[in-house]
Design a protein around this nucleic acid. Sequence first.
DNA 1: AGTGATGACCTTTTT
DNA 2: GGTCATCACT
Length: 726
Amino acid sequence: MDVSHLLDDLNKPQREAVSAATTPTLVLAGAGSGKTRVLVHRIAWLIQVEQFSPFSILAVTFTNKAAAEMRARIEQLLGTPMGGMWVGTFHSLSHRLLRRHWQEAGLPQLFQIIDSDDQLRLVKRVSRNLGLEEANWPARQSQWFINARKDNGERPEHIEDKGDPQTSQLRAIYEAYEAACKQAGVVDFAELLLRSLELLRDNPELLAQYRQRFRHLLVDEFQDTNTLQYGWLRLIAGDTTPPFAVGDDDQSIYGWRGAKIENIQNFSKDFHSTNIIRLEQNYRSSGNILEAANALIDNNQGRLGKNLWTDSGQGELIHLYAAHDENDEARYVTSRIRQWVEQGNNHQECAILYRSNAQSRVFESQLIEAGIPYRVYGGQRFFERAEIKDALAYLRLSANRHDDPSFDRVINQPPRGIGDKTVSVIRDHARDSGTSLWQAATALLEMNHFTARASNAITGFTQLIADISIDISGLPLEEQVDKTIRASQLKQHYLHKEKGDKGEARVENLNELVSAAQGFIYKPEDEHANMDFLSAFLSHASLEAGDSQTKAGNDCAQLMTLHSAKGLEFPLVFLVGLEEGLFPSQQSSEELNRMEEERRLCYVGITRAEKQLVISYAEQRRLYGTTHYGVPSRFIHEIPDRLVEPVRPKPSRPSWSASGYNTPTTSHIKQDTGGLSIGQSVSHKKFGNGIITDTEGSGSHARVQVNFEDAGSKWLVLTYANLSPL
DNA sequence: AGTGATGACCTTTTT
DNA sequence: GGTCATCACT
């Protein structure tokens, strides 16, 4: 068979990786070096050249998006469907294992998955049941504790409190939370991984069976694995299945949520005779951009070492814009986008990347004003919307009465006259008798515990759920969903409660849910083993939260955080808000590790750019209601001057004087305005006392606007004005 | 049970 | 500054 198409258009190290011997292999793939390509070609190589069956291949990614892309590209390259290959996220593959072996895993057959929102509610309820004050034991922190422990592979019994009452209490919450999950038959995200690891670890025959089956284990974005995921990989790999891991230590930006960059460093210790291959040729960015990225990341210690290069020429210099404030920054970026499009390019080729979501607003309003279409990534996703979760809760409850999180959610949604008082009676009874909320409610009804009014309301609810399950049984999925939504009267509720667009948008989303059900593909033979159609759909809804916005087709400028930009690329990139305290963020400045992660984040940002990179910072910025005076980020200083071209503002801006801008100094960084700031009271020989209301320019050109008590508002050049602070 | 007011919060995000 | 959540009020 001719396999030249698998190697022909690859460079040397890429070929080496694709055709590597079956030993543990670590591919250090720099940004834009063709990492996904190597993975996909490697899989095709194993099948077409090494003649391995697709059944013997397991490939793991972090996001659904990455998994979907990999699947599509493999099928395209092979020209056939993938057969029995397992390609998915850590969570979806763990999920699959648990569905196949639910009994061995100690789970009910129809266990459901809760997302972090459901988890938080459950932790809240558990804490209340333990009689803990929310103020002393914030549910968020307890949730974080539980997840961190699970990510570490620890159950409550593994936690030693060492006499610390805090740890001991949190352990008790963890324990009670586990019991609540068991009671309700639900499993959280971290549990999927931990439970499947325990399943394999404690069932040697099962483990042997999977080790026998999977001869190849491929891992994407290896630098993002946490302790639990790495343990999972090592367990499946054993001594027989050499892993093929692809990653980039310089792009590790998820340390704050448990990713262990050390895993990449430990790889060659844990797997003997590891073959390390470096992909250093970059096919994305121009030379100047790449050089800037290299210079920046070189400030980090303990890197595995890697230097990206390109043969595509120097390209444009990096533009640096020193904005007056955040509005000026947004105006500049907007004008550059307009200019870009006027030159015959597309909006979607432009990306504005920022450190935190709060920064997007200013850009949005400027873009609206300029009539430029844009799309903001992140934010609420489809299956996370309140109305969708309500509808899903009805469905889940109809499938499993003891699903407490769902019961809790819709017992009085829409309001049916069951108040907090009644619900807490039900909760207390459930807690004391160790039953589900549903059982508690029906038991209390039988005991005639409620007033006639409450009793009627509760009976109405239980009857509604019972009716729904009878009515929808046996119907096609989309009719089940549709009937449930109707029966719940959620649409009427939302239309009534939220007048105007908001309510209608919710109704539209509920309609969209029916379409989603219609489009859902049921695969009982592999992915959805041991699940009925409805359960499979509900699991899918939890596991894959769905895209935040459906209208991806339009030509829009792209706005997103640096984190969500990872893996993407754009011809024109704006890296905005490069000020100390914002990026790098204040919280990261004390610790070296966190500062290095910020730097990697900046590295990720720079390497998103193909042709043109524009960096900007603002001298003053309103954030959380107060004005901050920005010092340019250290990251700007870490980029060599020769790669940077400071740009002038548009002279037409009224609050700008062109002369005050960017005096030629040794550095491309502006000097500050001599210790005077807005809001400060000053005194002038001739004009008397006043308050500084604005500043502009720098060095000898710096001017301030002072609102004098008697003489009114004036612009003064600092060097001549001789102002004294009061 | 539904509304209006007050107070804490405030990196980054996937599953 | 803006959001969200909780509380007090009707």
